[in-house]
Structures are given as C-alpha cells and as structure tokens.
Design a protein around this nucleic acid. Sequence first.
DNA 1: GTCTATATGCTGATAGAC
DNA 2: GTCTATCAGCATATAGAC
Lengths: 195, 195
Amino acid sequence: MSPVREEVRSQGNRRHVVLAAAASCFQQAGYAAASMRDISAAAGMQPASLYYHFDSKDDLFVAVHEEGLRRITEAVVATIEGVPPGWGRLEAAAVAHLTTLLEGGEFFKAVMRDIPAGFAEREVITEMRDAYESIFAELIAGIDLPASTDPRHVRLMLLGAMNWCFTWYRPDGTSPADIARDFVSYLRSALDTGR
Amino acid sequence: MSPVREEVRSQGNRRHVVLAAAASCFQQAGYAAASMRDISAAAGMQPASLYYHFDSKDDLFVAVHEEGLRRITEAVVATIEGVPPGWGRLEAAAVAHLTTLLEGGEFFKAVMRDIPAGFAEREVITEMRDAYESIFAELIAGIDLPASTDPRHVRLMLLGAMNWCFTWYRPDGTSPADIARDFVSYLRSALDTGR
DNA sequence: GTCTATATGCTGATAGAC
DNA sequence: GTCTATCAGCATATAGAC
C-alpha cells in the first residue's frame, strides 16, 4: 500500500537454487563424497559463489536438513489433519512419511540418513530430527496399547523400517503407500486392544 | 609330519591387522571420509604398505564386507542351530543379528549401512548382503503366516528396524537382545495363526 | 551476487630401496 | 613386507575485482 515499499531484499537471490543443488548432491553421494565443486556445478555457478549464500559446507548441510524436515513435517501434519486419533491416524502419517521420503524429491533421502561421524553440528541435526519424530510419538500415545508394549519401541520399529526402505525400494515395485500400510497393519493386528 | 613342511606362507602377514583397521575406520567415518592414511595409522604402518595387502580402497571395503558378513552369518547360524522352525527360531536369529550388529565389534557397523553411491563394486556387496538376508527369508518361510501377509515385507520390516538401531542405540539402555525380542513379538502376536 | 585466481592441505596411488 | 619419497589431482575456503 505504501508507495515506497521495501522491496523483498535479496530478490533474484539464488539461495534456494544452491540449497536444491546441495540436497541433490548430498542425496546422491552422501555428505563426505559430495564436494562443493559438485554442488556449485549443479547450481550453475562457481564454487566461490556458494560462500556468498552459506558460510561452509557444514552450514549447507544443516540448511538442507532444516528445509527437508520443514517440508516433511508440513506434509505429514497436513495429511493427518482431521483424521481421528488411533491406528488410522498413525497409518495416514506413515503413508505420508514414506511417500514423501521415497518419491517426494531429493531433499529427503539426504535428510533421513545417519549423520556423518564427527560432524560438528551433529546436535543441531539430532534435535531437528527428534522434533519431527515427536509427531509419531504423539500419534502412538493416542493409541490404546497393551500395557506390556513399549510405545517407544513401536515408534522406533516403524520409523526404522520405513527409513531403511530407500536401500531396497524400487519405483516399479510396491508403492510407498502400500508398504507403509503393510508395516502399520502388522503392528496394528498385533497390538490393537480394541478388537 | 613330513620333515620339510611347507610353512604357512605369509606367516607374520599382517593382512588381518589391516582389515581390522579398515573396519574400524569405515565404521567410524564412513567409506568416503575414511582415508587410506587413517587406516594405515590405525594399522600401525605407512600408507604405501597397505597396497601390498590390497590393491585399492575399494578392494579393502569389499574385503571388510566379506569378513563382516562371514562372521555375522556364522553367529546367526550357530544360534539357530537346533531351534525348531517357527517364531522361536526367527526370534533367536533376530537376537543374534542385533546383538552382533550393536555389540559384536567394529566390522558390523561398517557393513550394515547404505553402500556409498557410485561405488564401483556395488553389485558384489549387494549380492553378499542378499545372501545373508536369505537366511531370514528362509526362517520366515518356515512360519505359517496369514495368506494376506507378504513374507517379504515382514522380513524387510524386521531387518530394516534392526539395521536402523545403530542410529539411536545407547549401550546404557535396553539391551540389543531385548530390543530384538520386542520387535519380533510385535510381529508375532500380529501374524501368528497358530494361536 | 558472481566472478577469477589462488592458498593450503589432503587424497589415492606408485616407484623403487631395503 | 615395509619403508621413504613423491606424483598429480582434488578438497574447502579466501581475497579481491567487477
């Protein structure tokens, strides 16, 4: 409205291009094997130009995680919205998680991996992942499990099984949604006290 | 007995020392981040000396996998010997697998990871892993599952959940054996038709 | 914001003495 | 079998022009 609008600073800024290029390289090669040269080539610029947008390779890795986890959180939260608590809600979240992970683009295979050993900001990444996984902890808390069952192990089993899928998943095989539904159904028929 | 015995050639050969050093480095840092210099230091020799025992870093990685998978196969096979087919046998195998993986030494965390992208001999490693996992396929085939259940997904869910454990396992928490038993029990009560 | 040019150190691997 | 010495190339990151 004001005639002298403060234009969005850094418009034409290609930070997001760099971020996407980094995600692609980290996903393909892993943190250590992806070089800043590779990333700069994927972004269509010179290596030195990356350092205008990010201070270091470590910073870039953290930023890729921030963006990836932000997006997958968004996808899962949007999916479970309105679904009543219980197994159906957990299933919906699992389907969203695995579908995003396996077919959602390059950000996610970079994010759902073991953190490179000796990585300086390991804790930052761990905390971001924990925040995301707490969604699943809450969903499982909303289910009436047998008293002998450890809800933490249920969560870790489900998420572990899903996060391992990228090692064997093939796009021409069973869909991510069907895989996720199978995994949840095995737990459900085991642990559903309401039946 | 013969007075002129052919002595074991390469006695005093430190190939096994190199192999253990490599396993340690690969496990700690991952393939790309572990350098031949790191490995040579861990083995107590000069970098050039490694090349007497192995032709390349790739070769060394393959050799670590061969040894690691040989050992974990041995551990699992020894454990299930004599246990009758069914859920108990699968549980015994899972306990042996996860215990070896998490507390069996440095070979296994190097082996049960995603293969570095672009690794030249990827297929060789994939085949070795498949051969190992076929043990679990057979164990699951020996269980009477509901017709609607996909035995392959049961195997992949269990192995995936276990192989992901090293990202969250802490030695001062639940023991690997108890974790494995929990995982199998969740599947078992779901899918056990014999109850 | 992106460039060219470069500093400094580490990489896998080889040659050849002992 | 292990060593010393070294090659050629690539790593992250910086300096400073435009």
